[in-house]
C-alpha cells in the first residue's frame, strides 16, 4: 500500500473494501489509526460483511469513539456550569461542536481538547472563572503568556489540574499575525444556540472555520480527518436552502475565499463531495501538492514524503507570522 488513498476510497465508497486482501486490511487499519479516522471508518463499514478480526478491531474503535463522546460532552457540561452563572454562552468549535450538535461529522470522530470561541470582551471574565474552577496554564513562562495574548487568536492553553483535560479559549479563528482577518464579531453574531447556554457557529461559518483550520492555520497534519469533517458538513448543510450563496458570502466576510475554494476542490477530488463549482473555482496545479501531502502515509502507518511535509511545515509558520518574528520565535524556542 503506497499511500493513504485506500483509506479515502473505503470512507468514500464502503463497497470498495469487499475484495481487499488480508494484508491490505492490516495496512488499512494502521493508516486509519494514524490518521485518527478509525472511528469514522468503523461507522462507514458498519453494514459491510467483513472478516471477524476486522469486525472486532472496528468494534474496539466504536467503543473508543463512544468513550470520547462521553468525555467531550462532559467537558462541555462542566464548562457550561462554570460560565453560565456569569452569563457567558460558549460557542463550541470543531469536534465538540459536531458531537454536541449531533452532526454526521461527529459520528465515530475522536474528539481531542475542548475549543470554545467567546466575544473578545468576555475573555477576561471567562479566564478568571476557569482559573478559579481548577484550570492551570499549560505553559506559564512569560514569553509564552505574552506571545499568546499579543499575537494569537486564543488564550494560552489551560489544563484542568484534576482531570488533566485541556481547553482552548479563542476570540477569533486565525492568529492575529496571519494576513487574512476573519470577522470575529460576525462569527459571534451568527452563532446558533444548540442547548441552554451553548452555541455553535452557523453552518457556513463552521465550514469556513474548518477550511481555515485545514488550509490557513497548519501544516496539514491530520488533514485527511479535517477534510472528512468538511465532507460530512457539506453533505449535511448543502441540503439547506441558499447554502452555497451563504457559504460564498461568509467566505468573503472572513477573507477566506481562497482557502474555502481549495478545501472544496480537495474534498470533491478525494471524497467525491458534491460541491458548487462557482464557489470551488477551477482546479489549480498546486492542488496536486496538497493531495500529495494529505496522502503521505505508507502501509505501516508511517509518514512519507518528508520533503513535501517540510515544505508545508515551513509554509504553516510563514503564514502565521511575518519572517522577522518567525526568526525570533524559533530562536527563543530553540534556546528554551
Amino acid at each position: 500500500m503506497r499511500d493513504a488513498l485506500p483509506l479515502v476510497r473505503a470512507l468514500t465508497d464502503p463497497a470498495s473494501v469487499d475484495h481487499i486482501m488480508p494484508d491490505d486490511w492490516t495496512a488499512l487499519l494502521s493508516i486509519a489509526r494514524a490518521e485518527r479516522l478509525i472511528g469514522s471508518l468503523a461507522v462507514r463499514l458498519k453494514e459491510r460483511d467483513l472478516p471477524v478480526s476486522v469486525m472486532e478491531a472496528l468494534e474496539a474503535a466504536r467503543v473508543q469513539a463512544a468513550f470520547d463522546h462521553v468525555q467531550a460532552r462532559w467537558e462541555v457540561e462542566l464548562t457550561r456550569r462554570l460560565l453560565a452563572p456569569l452569563g457567558i454562552r460558549p460557542i463550541l468549535l470543531k469536534g465538540s461542536a459536531f458531537v454536541v450538535a449531533g452532526l454526521a461529522a461527529g459520528e465515530g470522530r475522536m474528539v481531542g481538547d475542548l475549543d470554545i470561541l467567546l466575544p473578545a470582551d468576555q475573555l477576561n471574565k471567562a479566564e478568571a472563572a476557569l482559573l478559579v474552577g481548577g484550570y492551570e496554564w499549560a505553559k506559564d513562562d512569560p514569553y509564552t503568556q505574552a506571545y499568546y495574548r499579543r499575537w494569537m487568536h486564543e488564550l494560552p492553553p489551560l489544563i484542568h489540574a484534576e482531570r488533566g483535560t485541556m481547553i482552548d479559549v479563542h476570540h477569533t479563528i486565525l492568529p492575529l499575525t496571519a494576513r487574512p482577518t476573519p470577522d470575529a464579531p460576525a462569527l459571534v453574531a451568527d452563532a446558533v444556540d444548540i442547548a441552554p447556554g451553548l452555541a455553535t457557529l452557523s453552518p457556513a461559518d463552521m465550514i469556513v472555520h474548518a477550511a481555515c483550520h485545514l488550509i490557513a492555520d497548519g501544516d496539514m497534519a491530520g488533514g485527511l480527518r479535517n477534510l472528512w469533517d468538511i465532507d460530512r458538513l457539506v453533505r449535511d448543510f448543502s441540503r439547506q436552502a441558499n447554502f452555497w450563496p451563504m457559504l460564498a458570502e461568509r467566505s468573503g466576510v472572513h477573507q477566506m475565499r481562497e482557502p474555502v475554494a481549495r478545501t472544496l476542490r480537495l474534498t470533491h477530488q478525494l471524497y467525491e463531495t458534491p460541491v458548487d463549482h462557482a464557489v470551488a473555482g477551477h482546479t489549480r496545479a498546486s492542488d496536486a501538492l496538497f493531495v500529495r501531502r494529505l496522502l503521505s502515509r505508507d502501509g505501516w502507518g508511517r509518514q512519507t514524503n518528508r520533503a513535501t511535509r517540510l515544505a508545508f511545515y515551513i509554509r504553516s509558520h510563514w503564514m502565521r507570522m511575518p519572517p522577522l518574528m518567525l526568526a525570533r520565535h524559533l530562536w527563543i524556542k530553540a534556546r528554551s
Binding site: L29, S30, V52, S53, E56, A57, W300
Partner: peptide
C-alpha cells in the same frame, strides 16, 4: 499466525 492470516495490530521499531 493471526486468524485468516489477518493481523489487526501493528508494532514496529525504527
Amino acid at each position: 499466525a493471526p486468524d485468516e492470516g489477518l493481523a489487526t495490530l501493528t508494532a514496529r521499531i525504527e
